[in-house]
Write a protein that binds this DNA or RNA. Sequence first.
DNA 1: CGAAAATTTGGTAGAGTTACCAAAACCATC
DNA 2: GATGGTTTTGGTAACTCTACCAAATTTTCG
Lengths: 186, 186
Amino acid sequence: MNVPERILAAGVTLLHEQGLAALTQPRIAKAAGVSQSHLTYYFPTRNELLLAIAEHSVDQALALQLSQPLAKPAADPAQALATAMRFLPRVRMLLGLVVAADQDPALRDALVRLIAHVRHSIGQLLAHLGYQPDAPQVLVFHAAVVGLAVMNLGRQSPESEQELETGLAQLLTLLPHPSQPGRSSP
Amino acid sequence: MNVPERILAAGVTLLHEQGLAALTQPRIAKAAGVSQSHLTYYFPTRNELLLAIAEHSVDQALALQLSQPLAKPAADPAQALATAMRFLPRVRMLLGLVVAADQDPALRDALVRLIAHVRHSIGQLLAHLGYQPDAPQVLVFHAAVVGLAVMNLGRQSPESEQELETGLAQLLTLLPHPSQPGRSSP
DNA sequence: CGAAAATTTGGTAGAGTTACCAAAACCATC
DNA sequence: GATGGTTTTGGTAACTCTACCAAATTTTCG
């Protein structure tokens, strides 16, 4: 693997396992097996590194978790639910970067683009499942997934898993769907 | 004002204006007008301080933004929308603490209780407006508000404000309401 | 008034971080 | 094999943060 790629992979893993606080140059360098100075050769400042890690993580998540549902020709709506559930840990992982972005306009702009990208991908998946991809409700669906991920602090609790699923399932009924018309406007 | 209160007030303001990274003992002490050593007299460790700030902020938010709607005898559903919109900046402000809670189990447990408290209060408001307070959709409504706050990075953009409002308004139609029956189950 | 308790402060040790620099090792090309 | 560019490393200066301690000041109360 390439050195920058190894650095980004180590960064994503570190972010996933130990949170934003673990994303320091010494620790990432050690995890990637390069010297600390070498890190700054590829990513001169810390924010550039954070930004690259964020992009890498989102790309990775979309590739891993959207390619399969989109490859299958047709699927039942429950698949959207399952996909959303699989996204939850990854969303939580990125929360630290959102917080960090409050300090740095460049990072903030980059995250705005990343979030738009994710929303577009969610629209693609929903379109693939027969929903209207650009309905305003897609924003709310996306937001609810993000919010559930943020609030799901006690991650292991199975009852909250249940709550999450029923909540998202009900949210799906809000989306306009060809086979269940009449939900969009009164 | 009491010294601990002054410290907490300074902490909340600092968190609101400059994010989690600004919540260090030196800066809070300076903002509160006390010596740094004095801070540790009331809050020996940093996490205890963070926890106290979180609780203070949530109490303050609930008191400020829920007391008035609950005082008025009846109100139109659009008020729930307006209240939710007013909560967004405060929710954003607390995100940093959620991130910090990943490192510390005690802080995490405290935040779980705080989140439950907020959800209960939202239920109260919705009940006051005629909705079912314990409907599972309340979780989703809460989550959507949180998620919108997270994603609302470009805070000044009026178009995203518009998007937010329409999204939340549609979400409200999902909640079971006496005057608009038949939405709960197919 | 005097003693005990609470409050407040300055100082600091120790760890951790970012960003930088000069030098060494590596690699391609002529 | 020499040369110029790229990659890699060790070292470090300057800074910030947390947690602690001993001493000074103020307050409380018998």
